[in-house]
Nucleic acid binder design. Sequence first.
DNA 1: ATAATAGTTAACCATATGGTTAACTATTCG
DNA 2: CGAATAGTTAACCATATGGTTAACTATTAT
Lengths: 122, 122
Amino acid sequence: MVNYSPATLDATFAALADPTRRQILQRLSEQPQRVTDLAGPFAMSLPAVSKHLRILEDAGLLTRRRLGREHHLQLEPAPLRDAQSWIEHYRRFWEGSLDALAEYLEKPTPLTKPKKKKRKKT
Amino acid sequence: MVNYSPATLDATFAALADPTRRQILQRLSEQPQRVTDLAGPFAMSLPAVSKHLRILEDAGLLTRRRLGREHHLQLEPAPLRDAQSWIEHYRRFWEGSLDALAEYLEKPTPLTKPKKKKRKKT
DNA sequence: ATAATAGTTAACCATATGGTTAACTATTCG
DNA sequence: CGAATAGTTAACCATATGGTTAACTATTAT
């Protein structure tokens, strides 16, 4: 059974919600890189990139290995798998819910108090 | 070819980054519901839920159909497919990148200026 | 030892986010 | 009609986010 820790998903999805961070992950998927390498293409200061890296690191999406004064960033796919899995899991209901909708639209719509349908997990 | 509009992904991932909103989607995946139905289980005011719904609606994750004074919320799986697809696409590089890392760690590490590897899409 | 390089931390700023209560609009019920 | 119901909008508040510049630490090079 899949657990989907809310806090973890929060951090993962929040980390993915920024285009700069998605680009960083994208670039890191080609090859591990140092902070300065990653910062290069971006039109923003090094501390800004440093902050993004911290967020990605806190979300568990990358790990840092210090080699002398250089920090080498490496991808960590685990949280991504959970996020993808969350989407995948509910998307199945989703696509199914279109049928549910059709059914729902054909019934005599007892919509005034549909409070009794709370049988599953909240 | 998949395009992955950054703005759309921003909105989708940001919408998913909140546990309340994920629960709303989850509940809607079982059955379309009205605003008050959705708000019921949450320990927060109706306007707060209303705001969450607006965010989900703006992100294209649900659509609203007004039936009299009731607003019926319905799921819209399309943005989810894009988000999942984004993750899926890069996760492949990810898992591959572990091999890249191995290779990278075995080479005499010309790490001082690895700027030449920018052949692909930024 | 000094200087350059790699990167973080601190302080600050503007805007966004997530919540509140109060007031409002629109629809339905009696 | 007037009252209740469904929901939004407005104004406000506290905290988070994404960026800046300046100052700092740590390592490497001369």
